[in-house]
Design a protein around this nucleic acid. Structure first.
Length: 507
RNA sequence: GGGCGCGUAGCUCAAUGGAAGAGCAGUGGCCUUUUAAGCCAUUGGUUGAGAGUUCGAGCCUCUCCGCGCUCACCA
């Protein structure tokens, strides 16, 4: 470990401490209360016994976040996972040697244990009057923290650590410094718990299906590939859970869900990370209309339980998650947005011509479904700010979904949008094995010359369906995006603890 | 992958092609109720890496690395 100048100074302090018989990394601590507990106890005492001194003693532990040191007195703030408190070290209580030790050896970022009683300082802040303290863990590297600056009488507040590269590469430092970042991940954890509670309370069981898969499927995405050495077998990291979860319906598990990681070998953006967390569920005897209602209940319930409100701020706008959400039929939505009635253009060339006439462009050789998908992405998605369900999708981009009755070109599928982002995707699942096989073959033919879009046929999935699959509604939702919406963050990297970054080149 | 922008002290940022700076952090002093503590002094730089143009490059040119935005991609 190469030490810079600041680190060398701290390393020397470690040596100095050891030479005085002080262990900078002791094995045990005697911390007996969290900071929150101490603050609560003091507040309770004050409410009951006004103006009496509080004699109970507390031993608190935490990271030193600020130091204000005077000649015979020093203040500091320490912070643990529960909160922050000011401590006061005074010559009267500690004696010269101990106070000098604090001043000589303790820096910002060190973990300290401090014991004493609680009081209010002259300015009224609840303060631990320290009678004893010890180092719990010396920080060698200073946290990359900055303070604010005063220029021409104007206070300029710098973010403590704002460089995104440093924040994400050294997330531990980002978390240690920025309380609001810790809060995002508390919310994230609470969101996952609330989703599980919601699913459990509706009779679903949580299951785990393979991440390493011999055949990938259930979505249109490029997979990561890997290899099992002993078995001489190529494997893929899953791009969705769908095909395995529906096998479970065949097996008699009527309501299943999984929360876990998907891996897609594709572009990275503010809303795409190569690995991301998804909730998928499959619900026997339900269809996409039931799932639609279930979805708005689920998301609004989660928001209420986690944030105590169903109205969230996102990118300067208020999103109202209260059911029912707006419903837009896909054909009508596109007609309203650009005047094109997709039903009048049954094939790709005619639709493309109509789009070109409106000044809309698309990749050449797109299928009809791809063109419609492009229309959704360009014209509809950015404008779906309030929660909106878009429903009834073209069949050729939805090979696993069931037709709308008496309409072979359209399937029972919806996507949920809000804040201008796609949040979830759902359909009445196709459960006719012969039809499913036809669709796979169609897909294979449509993308015969397109390696990126061609997907392998999953014979075992067809075998499962052949035993009989109950009619069901399926659902998938990006948890990362949901957390973005609930925490008002604009990049998926903000809600993933260790987002993917390019590997740093060694010199 | 394409386009645009950025990379200077531990952190946040300055610096017409002409002597690399500030605030905070650090270090040494003074200071027993501070909280963005204060006052005095002071250390700290391969300006992302490499090459080129120039009498002279943080600044101009090229290559590379990384980050951001954006486009493409993403049933």
């Amino acid at each position: 470990m190469e030490l810079n100048e600041l680190e060398k100074i701290r390393a020397e302090k470690i040596n100095a401490m050891r030479s005085q018989g002080i262990e900078p990394y002791p094995t045990r601590s005697e911390v007996d209360h969290s900071i929150r507990q101490a603050l609560d106890a003091f507040a309770q005492f004050e409410a009951d016994h006004q103006d009496e001194p509080f004699s109970e003693t507390f031993i608190l532990g935490g990271r030193i976040r600020s130091i204000r040191s005077m000649g015979k007195l020093a203040f500091a703030h320490i912070e643990d996972g529960s909160g922050r408190i000011q401590i006061m070290l005074r010559l009267n209580e500690l004696g010269e040697e101990a106070l000098a030790q604090f001043k000589d050896y303790f820096d910002l970022g060190d973990f300290i244990q401090a014991g004493g009683t609680l009081m209010r300082s002259r300015t009224g802040e609840v303060t631990l009057l320290v009678s004893s303290f010890k180092m719990l863990a010396k920080a060698v590297s200073p946290l990359p923290a900055a303070k604010d600056e005063e220029v021409d009488g104007q206070i300029i507040r710098h973010a403590t650590l704002s460089d995104p590269e440093t924040r994400f590469r050294q997330r531990y430092a980002d978390l240690a410094i920025n309380e609001e970042v810790r809060e995002i991940f508390r919310v994230r954890s609470a969101v996952v718990r609330a989703l599980q509670r919601f699913m459990d309370s509706h009779g679903f069981i949580e299951v785990e299906t393979p991440i390493l898969q011999p055949i990938y499927g259930g979505a249109a995405a490029q997979p990561f590939t890997t290899h099992h050495n002993q078995l001489h077998q190529d494997l893929y990291l899953r791009i969705s859970f769908e095909l395995y979860l529906k096998r479970l319906l065949v097996g008699g598990l009527d309501r299943v869900y999984e929360i876990g990681r998907d891996f897609r070998n594709e572009g990275v953006s503010f809303k795409h990370n190569p690995e991301f967390t998804q909730l998928e569920f499959y619900w026997a005897y339900a269809d996409y209309l039931k799932v639609m209602e279930f979805t708005e209940q689920m998301v609004s319930t989660v928001a209420r339980e986690v944030l105590n409100t169903q109205k969230v701020q996102f990118k300067g706008q208020e999103l109202d998650l209260t059911p029912p959400w707006k419903r837009v039929e896909l054909r009508q939505g596109i007609l309203d947005a650009c005047g094109i009635d997709i039903d009048q253009y049954p094939d790709a060339p005619s639709l493309l011509k109509a789009m070109n006439a409106k000044g809309l462009t698309a990749k050449p050789d797109s299928t009809r479904g791809k063109l419609i998908d492009a229309l959704i992405g360009d014209l509809l998605e950015p404008n779906f700010i309030q929660p909106t369900f878009l429903y009834n999708y073209p069949r050729d981009i939805s090979p696993l979904a069931k037709n709308v009755p008496n309409n072979p070109a359209v399937v029972e599928r919806f996507e949920g949008f809000m804040g201008g982002m796609e949040l979830c995707n759902s359909f009445t699942e196709l459960n006719d094995p012969l039809e499913q096989e036809k669709r796979f073959i169609e897909m294979g033919r449509a993308y015969e010359n397109d390696d990126e879009e061609r997907h392998p046929m999953d014979e075992d999935y067809l075998q499962a369906m052949s035993y009989g699959m109950p009619p069901n509604g399926g659902f998938g939702m990006g948890i990362d995006r949901l957390v973005m919406l609930l925490t008002n963050t604009t990049s998926i990297r903000e809600v993933i603890l260790f987002p993917h970054l390019r590997e740093r080149e060694e010199e």
